[in-house]
Design a protein around this nucleic acid. Structure first.
Lengths: 176, 176
DNA sequence: CACTAATCGTTAGGGCCCAAATTATCGGAC
DNA sequence: GTCCGATAATTTGGGCCCTAACGATTAGTG
């Protein structure tokens, strides 16, 4: 959101719209940069690594999670990847058609679906992940070791800040 | 990606797949947490603040950018919001139908489209942004002031790490 | 004046993404 | 055994999101 503009430019622009309400501009800056960074990194990795193998971001995440933890249940992939099971269903259908994963019903619990990579899927990941990780290193190249750990920690704190809040109460619908 | 599992659990699982290749697990952790955090925060804000006004994340970003910088050109909204002009076209059509923004061609340069909020759009943002910012504060509640600034800085460094890389990489399209 | 290249916004097509509804299964209580 | 509530995955419907192609406009060149 606040992109080429500095924080204080944006801050004074907002004050011009809202007056001197109690606003947390530091929080705004963190959240804003969080999304700029996530978008930028995602687009970069899609273009540099994933596009050559005709994979989307989410498809890669599904493959990665499955690669590491297979055999794995559908719901675990969704939780690990951070997207809904509905999204996962569609993506897995695509990956199954391309012969990269297999789906089979669990024999002891008929509700579950167990996911595995095919040999082709494993071969792809073995080639792809080192390339992917090399770009992850590029993306974080300007951070020192200490800074990387601090960043990872701060991001975890934000996840915690959200999950704690979500557990409390869902708001009543009110549109306008 | 690495969610309920610790970094060292994931690290040893990856080593089991790839052996002792040169991998940057710290970078992996930062990128992984970046996306978990972005997803979590986005979903949280959509549910707590945006859903009540029947707005998607991107629609809100478009309104916000326009609110702060109007009158503003289409391409600037896209750059500021971090998505493609194609995406923006669709979202703006939705917002225009709902009577929250207006589009008009620039009189001096017929290629440009100038975007403004309607009075209803401005009223909505004046109500919505304080709620949104309150949640931004919630999300960052576990970060100290110093930590917030460090986080925002680290995220900017990652954006820089990407943009620098993107500027060097793209193979020039040979035309003619 | 053409002619050409560059730029802007839109549209087309394919894929992701979510909530809600749906189908199927399981587990416990009777 | 039969209900009933909980759980798992999928489908549905609407919206976002990208790249590539397109039409319109502008700017630069001779």
């Amino acid at each position: 959101m606040a992109g080429q503009h500095t924080l204080s430019e944006t801050e004074s622009a907002v004050r011009g719209r809202l007056g001197d309400l109690e606003l947390d501009f530091e929080a705004m800056s963190v959240v804003s940069n969080l999304f700029r960074a996530a978008n930028a990194v995602r687009n970069h990795l899609e273009r540099t690594v994933l596009a050559r193998s005709d994979l989307t971001w989410t498809a890669f995440v599904v493959l990665w999670v499955t690669w590491i933890w297979e055999p794995i249940e559908t719901r675990q992939i969704a939780a690990e990847g951070g997207f809904s099971k509905a999204t996962l269903s569609g993506v897995m259908t695509t990956l199954e058609k391309r012969g990269l994963i297999t789906r089979e019903r669990d024999t002891t619990d008929g509700r579950l679906v167990i996911v595995n990579l095919t040999p082709a899927g494993r071969k792809l990941m073995k080639r792809l992940f080192p390339e992917f990780n090399a770009q992850e290193r590029q993306v974080t190249q300007h951070l020192g070791n200490r800074e990387k750990q601090a960043a990872a920690q701060a991001l975890r704190e934000m996840i915690r800040g959200v999950e704690r809040e979500d557990a409390t109460q869902p708001p009543p619908p009110m549109r306008g």
